[in-house]
């Protein structure tokens, strides 16, 4: 359980090798993001060679292929980058703050909070567009985040990782139950909700990209700011406190960051579960548990995973598309199991 192969402690393994492995991972991930972006711009029901893609990006006047690239694929790719980074970082934060390897933003109730308010908006308000859903999703995520924190922190000893994880799981179950109840009672709501809840990048980028950026970017900055504190928290609350870390304040900032990131991503693309859970595990296997490296790498890996899944979804089932969420589970699950089997996992 407690043995980690990639500890940050000096002396457990030569320092340079860890540092060069981390640098290598960052470079590899940057290259992978680049490749994924090119693929995402070029591949689809209409395959456009990379040269024409570049031409389309550089010469705004061109038409035909260029129009497809500029008006459809560029926003979709950008949305994939934003959502992937947000989900990867949110997952790493959630696992860090709950100290539970099973935690992901969905488990903290944030995704189900967003889903519940979207359903209420459809059911009571007749809202019927992605541009309309996004505000309700953000509000729901924020409400759920605040509620989880208040509930998890209101025990006699304040929030501990276990109470936080359990409060999130319980709240998430309640909200999912209420969502199911509304959806089952009204067929038209179910019909609209299904389109939002599949988790996909297609057809939503134009409406959601800009508002989501205003939420996700502050979330990413806050997340990076908590990284040193998270490293200390991993040693346990008492040790962290004695090292001078303001434990309560760090938890609040962290939860705000998770809410912004997961709420923004869910509002933009619907609930996508796999990324937040898996990406931190994959990345941690190389970077070790240092959150200053883990968080940026999780952002890059999240981007790669989402974009690749999106591209795969476009080509596997012509003439239609498979949604990102479905592709992620089908391709990602065996990969994740293989990874868990092969490596000795670093403790979350």
């Amino acid at each position: 359980m407690s043995t980690t192969s990639t500890g940050p402690e000096p002396g457990t393994r030569p320092r340079r090798s860890l540092r060069s492995r981390r640098a290598g991972l960052v470079l590899a991930l940057l290259a992978a993001v680049l490749v994924a972006v090119v693929l995402s711009l070029a591949v689809g029901s209409l395959v456009i060679p990379p040269g024409r893609v570049l031409e389309a990006l550089l010469h705004p006047a061109a038409s035909g292929d260029a129009d497809v690239v500029r008006s459809l694929r560029v926003p979709r790719t950008l949305l994939g980058l934003v959502v992937g980074a947000a989900l990867g970082v949110a997952g790493a934060l959630a696992q860090g703050f709950t100290r539970n390897p099973l935690a992901d933003p969905g488990l903290l109730g944030i995704t189900s909070g967003a889903a519940f308010l979207v359903v209420l908006a459809i059911f009571l308000g007749g809202v019927a567009s992605f541009a309309g859903y996004i505000w309700f999703a953000l509000a729901g995520a924020a409400l759920a985040g605040v509620l989880v924190f208040l509930l998890g922190a209101s025990g006699r000893a304040g929030g501990t990782p276990v109470t936080l994880a359990l409060a999130g799981a319980a709240l998430s179950a309640v909200l999912l139950g209420l969502t199911t109840a509304v959806v089952l009672s009204d067929q038209t709501t179910l019909d609209q909700y299904r389109f939002w809840s599949v988790g996909s990048l297609s057809g939503r980028a134009a409406d959601t990209l800009i508002p989501v950026l205003f939420v996700v970017v502050p979330g990413l900055l806050l997340a990076l700011a908590t990284a040193p504190g998270l490293n200390a928290l991993a040693l346990g609350d008492d040790v962290a406190r004695s090292l001078g870390v303001p434990v309560g304040a760090i938890r609040i900032v962290g939860l705000v960051a998770i809410t912004l990131l997961a709420g923004g991503a869910t509002a933009a693309a619907g609930p996508i579960a796999f990324v937040g859970l898996v990406v931190p595990h994959v990345v941690r296997a190389v970077t070790g548990p240092d959150y200053r490296w883990l968080l940026p790498c999780a952002a890059l890996a999240g981007m790669v995973l989402i974009l690749v899944a999106d591209v795969v979804g476009r080509v596997v089932a012509p003439p239609g598309e498979l949604q990102v969420g479905v592709v992620l589970a089908v391709v990602g699950a065996p990969f994740f199991v293989a990874l868990v089997r092969r490596r000795r996992l670093a403790a979350a």
């Binding site: 509930l151 998890g152 209101s154 025990g155 006699r156 000893a157 501990t160 276990v162 109470t163 359990l166 409060a167 319980a170 709240l171 179950a173 309640v174 999912l176 139950g177 209420l178 199911t180 109840a181 089952l184 009672s185």
Partner: peptide
Amino acid sequence: TPVGVVTAVLGGPFLLYLITRGRRET
């Protein structure tokens, strides 16, 4: 309503109540 929906909506708040009045946990 299927019973599965109600178990979640009933059980969740009760667990939350127990958590909020619980003692420090490890």
